[in-house]
């Protein structure tokens, strides 16, 4: 075997764990006889040991924080998701609130449609609901998105949503004069603000709950 070339080649293969059984025997046999190669082989192995003992370094203390500070901002969605995971109660409350609000908006803005409570005695003319003279309407009356003209009597509460109470002669009724427009044997309530509508909803909801 030619020294210094073939055998050195075999040494490196040995160090990489690439040596076949036959080659290994070949190398061993050669090393036993050749002192120069033995020395070379020893130096190589020692070199590897030395390399492994090279000085070790650790990253500066605040390394991770510096990296995190330099990262591009994460997607908002994820921030929210993490927040939600961390505050489940608040999340539930928020979802409930949103649902309630949308429910109210939806019932508020069933736009423009005239809605009247179901009482046969009520007469509807265009957007005006009339309680005819001499007629008594039993139960509560609800008029939404329309005008109410009371000539007769209503035996219950009146709720006007987004509408107006008009008197006989068609002129608008001030709040103070409402009672004079026919007879209402109950409370008369006018709702034409979002907030009031919410309040009304809430009240009727609670009333429903309690009567239940």
């Amino acid at each position: 075997m030619e020294c210094n070339k073939e055998s050195v080649e075999l040494m490196h293969k040995y160090l990489d764990g690439d040596l076949y059984k036959k080659e290994e025997e070949q190398l061993r046999a050669h090393l036993e006889t050749c002192e120069a190669c033995q020395h070379h082989f020893h130096e190589l192995k020692r070199t590897i040991t030395l390399i492994k003992s090279a000085e070790h370094f650790t990253a500066p203390m605040d390394f991770t924080q510096k990296v995190m500070d330099r990262l591009p901002t994460e997607k908002k969605r994820v921030t929210y998701m993490r927040w939600f995971k961390m505050h489940p109660v608040l999340t539930a409350a928020a979802i409930f609130f949103v649902l309630m609000m949308t429910g109210m908006f939806a019932s508020w803005s069933e736009d423009g449609q005239l809605v009247v409570s179901k009482q046969e005695e009520l007469v509807i003319q265009g957007d005006t609901v009339i309680v005819p003279e001499g007629v008594t309407v039993p139960g509560d009356v609800l008029v939404k998105n329309g005008k109410l003209l009371i000539k007769g009597t209503i035996d219950g509460n009146v709720t006007l949503v987004n509408g107006k109470l008009i008197s006989d002669d068609g002129s608008l009724n001030g709040e103070g004069l409402m009672a004079s427009a026919g007879g209402v044997n109950g409370e008369l309530e006018t709702v034409d603000q979002m907030f009031e509508w919410m309040w009304y909803q809430l009240k009727s909801f609670l009333r429903g709950v309690f009567s239940f």
Binding site: F57, A59, T64, M68, V78, R82
Partner: peptide, 25 residues
């Protein structure tokens, strides 16, 4: 991968010494 940036901090602190050392060498 899902977009959770804070999980990356753990990855950094696990590899920081190795990578820093590699770069330094």
């Amino acid at each position: 991968k899902k977009g959770d940036q804070s999980a990356f901090a753990d990855v950094v602190s696990f590899y920081q010494d190795k990578i820093y050392q590699h770069c330094l060498r």
